[in-house]
Design a protein around this nucleic acid. Structure first.
Length: 395
RNA sequence: GCGCAGGUGGCGGAGUGGUCAAUCGCAAUUGGCUGUAAACCAAUCGCCCUAUGGGCUACGGGGGUUCAAAUCCCUCCCUGCGCACCA
């Protein structure tokens, strides 16, 4: 057996799946196909933005794509953009992004890698910090490289274009962002670079730069961006429309159920391993059942099958049958005011909120079925429901 | 350095001496409808209290004028734009 060959899986079906599922752009498609079929071990680059440590399903899309390459035996090369994070990536932003401290970056990265481990095999991946080479690059070299990149092209990017038109500032260092990212590709000799579709431009600069430096230009494969639970904007923590990979099973299940119907199939395609045929089968069902299948599938992926089944049961009992969930947060009453206990348990923000909720009839004592109307009632042992999905058991 | 325009609640963005805890939109919360979807209707949306009322804190920071300031003055910090400097 020729171990150096046999390590790479060149199954045409798997290759087609990689090239199509969730893929937005493949440049150059034929080239990637050829590379994948060649049996050569490829270096697949993914740049990581170390600004936020919490991964969500949005991040999972590209990581899953990377995993697919790993499964065929290729090398995942993660580039931690520690150097670039200090600069601030202008992509998609309407304003200059603030720089991060190196300590924050390091802390974020540790967490990031640990969470990415839920999807890719981080032990087999090559991990680099781009400060390793970017920080050492002499200015003369930077200057030389900069001559390969055309500002007119960069200005075509809508984010820059908008800022230019509205008269807001664009700093020179922001122009360097694509260049730096491109240089990463040069440095690690990437065969294929992955990214979200919003990164297409940056990734293509990598191609250009490699070509100019007489390297084989990398190919670029971008995946679709995933909308968040609001169904409108790209999933992101700052918009609070995200489903975190580390979310508690019940939360995860609930959040997925709150995703608009129109996105169910997209979620299936981008976030799960379900076969296309299976997805088609599911799409024939009514939306609620589709979504339950989706939620169950995703929760299984991150928490295991049995936990997912429990989450499903919890969901159906609590919301469909309107029963009381089984695993409710518990707290000792100790004769305090109910409002105090609620604040203490962090199910509400303030006593003022408590008063509002009481007024609105949002609080129910599930043991007696009563809705307290007095703000100043004491916390006797009982189970309370606050609004639709907050529960607290007082002992 | 000079000039101009700004810094208001999670965001956008009104308000330019009292009627401002601050119009409005988005987001959020709650109730209704429901599939914890969407859409729609209604209400709420600084904090605290001895609670259809009262108090406190808040409009970049600090100080001042005034019976009274988010609103006027001084000062500092920050952001953007223009000019100058430099080349």
């Amino acid at each position: 057996m020729f171990w150096n060959k046999s390590q790479i899986d060149t199954d045409p079906d798997k290759i087609e799946d990689i090239l199509t599922r969730g893929v937005e752009d493949a440049i150059v498609l034929e080239s990637i196909r050829t590379k994948l079929s060649s049996g050569k071990k490829l270096r697949i680059k993914l740049g990581i933005d170390p600004t936020s440590p919490d991964l969500h399903l949005g991040h999972s899309v590209v990581l899953r794509k990377l995993r697919a390459f790993q499964d065929l035996g290729h090398t995942a090369v993660l580039i931690i953009g520690d150097f670039t994070a200090v600069v601030g990536d202008p992509t998609g932003k309407s304003a200059t992004r603030p720089a991060l401290s190196t300590e924050t970056v390091e802390k974020n990265m540790k967490e990031y890698i640990s969470q990415a481990g839920l999807i890719i095999d981080t032990k087999k991946a090559e991990i680099h910090h781009n400060s390793d080479w970017l920080a050492k690059l002499p200015f003369s070299e930077v200057y030389r490289l900069a001559a390969f990149i055309n500002v007119t092209q960069i200005l075509e990017r809508s984010d820059f274009k908008n800022r230019l038109q509205s008269g807001s500032s664009i700093k020179i260092h922001e122009f360097f962002y694509p260049l730096m990212q491109a240089y990463d590709s040069v440095e690690i000799k990437a065969d294929v670079e992955l990214g979200g579709n919003d990164q297409l431009f940056n990734n293509l600069v990598g191609r250009t730069l490699m070509e100019k430096l007489d390297l084989t230009p990398q190919d670029v494969l971008t995946v679709s961006l995933l909308e968040g639970t609001d169904g409108i904007a790209k999933m992101s923590k700052s918009l609070d429309n995200y489903i975190g990979l580390r979310d508690k099973p019940n939360d995860m299940f609930g959040k997925i159920m709150s995703v608009p119907d129109s996105l169910i199939i997209k979620y299936f395609n981008l976030c799960t391993n379900k076969e296309t045929s299976e997805i088609e089968e599911i799409s024939a069902k009514n939306p609620r059942d589709q979504k339950i299948a989706l939620a169950k599938e995703i929760v299984s992926m991150y928490h295991g099958k049995s936990v997912a089944e429990k989450a499903e049961k919890n969901f159906i009992d609590t919301f469909s049958k309107k029963e009381v969930p089984t695993d409710i947060q518990e707290i000792i009453g100790g004769g305090k005011m109910l409002s105090e206990i609620f604040v203490e348990a962090e199910v509400i923000q303030s006593k003022t909120e408590f008063a509002t909720l009481i007024k609105q009839g949002a609080i129910t004592n599930l043991d007696t079925g009563e809705k307290p109307s007095d703000i100043r009632i004491s916390a006797s042992p009982a189970t309370y429901r606050i609004g639709k999905h907050r529960f607290l058991k007082i002992k």
